[in-house]
Design a protein around this nucleic acid. Structure first.
Lengths: 340, 340
DNA sequence: CTGAAAGCGCTTACAG
DNA sequence: CTGAAAGCGCTTACAG
């Protein structure tokens, strides 16, 4: 193994001290302009690479952020890849690196923190995707800053960046009602994640505001509490529209309805959530909510970096999404409906 | 900012030296068993975390591996998320961490290496997804080990783990021929990536071995050389089967054919590649090739770690995939065909 | 403008 | 079994 070139090597070559080399390479004052240029040129020639570990050990800062994602999410939720991409780019832009850790079921269950924490490899953690309450509490107790991204835990005070699920679902349901729908079902296990629950509550608020009595048969589960997807059982009496907790489930339900002979959107309207790959894979393309990944990422990165510096608190920050109108909703003519 | 607990702090508390603490915590000999236990207990109580940077600066090893993925791939190829997951888990198992870097178009075009390289944040790099030849050459010239995952560059000698595209495409085309097909088209721009090219060559070998004259009209482009997807133009004379360079393109072609009134597989058979999300999204589900992500990841991780230790060379390692038979291929009865 | 000294947290010889 | 010394690569006062 050939040892890396160090500042000392450059100093020796040039007959100066490593202090001067350090100043020159870091553009600090205290070096003659001519010497600085010569040092930089020599560094380049010798293939010098800055050793960030040395700085880390001195200041206790690694300029790494751990990005922890529970296994179950990275598995099903393919749209997390755009979060990964955005996070790594945004951190890079800020002079940080992203260390990826996939949290196994086993680690989560046994409340074991990732190795990168025990080895001081990161200055803070971004948790991408929901972890259980016990694990969230554990994360709240550790001595580096933590930010939750795309979920929050009701029992913990950890700063979170979430998409404004409540508001988006409220608007989406309003949109259905404006289009004449009154029999509207919600698909999602409201105990599985905070997102699914909040989306349900937004849906519910819209119903209540519009004086539509919620029908218990119209809240339909799609998965177990632990997130395992299950078969969806259609209600006996068909609603005119389904609000689905995500595009993937919307995709499933559209196909299920089609197989039973229902036409979308002529007979039944369906809306989704996330605007992920499933939204445009579904035929007809789904009217859905586009999550503002860029904005959420940029906020989360900003928060974690500021917290490292000042340990400031932010609370839950909801980020507004955007409704994308496509072809899966039909406008119901009320009169016509009444005539049937 | 509260300074972290160090070995010195533990030593002070217990009235011993930090050398003894180091030995105790690292399970090295040279400490009494009783004292070792006491030190471990105290470390636990004081919330001690091992500072891996200190070791890094001493040995010049970070126990981090950079995982570099070109932007264009993480965008379209959603199945790379399973690579991310596997890589991070496998590295973790081996005591390493994965630093994620998304290589922007701009970095690739201007031949700029990722910051984690210039800052010595990683001991080696895994390049996930094809980079241009110039960039591949650049990677070949740097002074930490590099392994290419899921592609190789014909001009560079860098160790690569690839799925055995050639062989898989060969077998897949053989399968079509065994099922009576002789008019077989290939969809993919054979200049875009080495995968697409190798899959084409496997297809071609099968044709040649079976004395089927290759028809130039039956090699159909699906994207530009830089990877940007384009509209696919169907050939004037319809083949009985399409070999697609990936499931996503198979999905597109199936829908396009359906829209023109063709039935799959009754009128036209279609096979894909990758066994990713599109394989089972396509109706009928695609017969395709399952890439052995686990095996490929484990090999790549093994290679990079060994290279860090001994700078050994591996060359190109192809990993066999597996043909998954689903419902998108019809068996053609030759006689019946002849009667038409 | 230039550089000798001390220190970050840890480990490895080596001495007692 | 225990620990003082030296060193990894770098930076920050501080002295010249």
């Amino acid at each position: 193994m050939n040892r890396n070139v160090t500042m000392q090597d450059i100093a020796d070559r040039l007959g100066v001290s490593k202090v001067t080399v350090s100043k020159a390479l870091n553009n600090k004052e205290g070096v003659g302009e001519e010497l600085r240029l010569k040092i930089k040129k020599t560094a380049e020639e010798m293939g010098y690479r800055y050793n960030s570990c040395a700085k880390s050990v001195k200041y206790g800062l690694t300029y790494n952020i751990g990005v922890i994602s529970p296994e179950k999410f990275t598995g099903t939720n393919s749209f997390y890849i755009s979060f990964y991409k955005m996070i790594s780019k945004e951190l890079d832009r800020r002079g940080y690196s992203a260390i990826l850790h996939t949290l196994s079921h086993e680690e989560e269950a046994s409340l074991r923190l990732p190795r990168l924490y025990y080895e001081c490899k990161a200055d803070g953690l971004i948790i991408l995707g929901q972890v259980g309450t016990r694990y969230a509490e554990l994360l709240g107790s550790i001595d580096i800053p933590v930010v939750f991204l795309d979920f929050y835990d009701k029992h913990s005070e950890i700063d979170s960046v979430i998409s404004d699920n409540f508001h988006a679902a409220y608007e989406l349901t309003n949109y259905l009602i404006e289009n004449g729908h009154r029999e509207i079902a919600y698909i999602g296990n409201i105990n599985a994640t905070s997102s699914i629950q909040d989306r349900y509550l937004g849906y519910l608020k819209s119903l209540l505001e519009n004086r539509i009595t919620p029908n218990p048969d119209y809240v339909i589960s799609d998965r177990l509490d632990d997130g395992t997807l299950t078969d969806i059982v259609l209600p006996e009496r068909m609603p005119t529209a389904f609000v689905c907790n995500c595009d993937m489930v919307a995709y499933k339900i559209v196909n299920k309805l089609k197989q039973s002979g229902w036409r979308i959107p002529e007979d039944v309207s369906v809306v989704g959530f996330d605007d992920d790959i499933y939204a445009t894979l579904t035929i007809p393309n789904l009217t859905t909510v586009q999550v503002n990944v860029a904005e959420m990422t940029s906020l989360a990165v900003n928060m974690i970096i500021n917290k490292i510096r000042s340990n400031k608190s932010y609370g839950r920050i909801p980020v507004r999404g955007r409704i994308i109108i496509r072809d899966s909703v039909r406008t119901i003519n009320r009169n016509q409906e009444a005539m049937e």
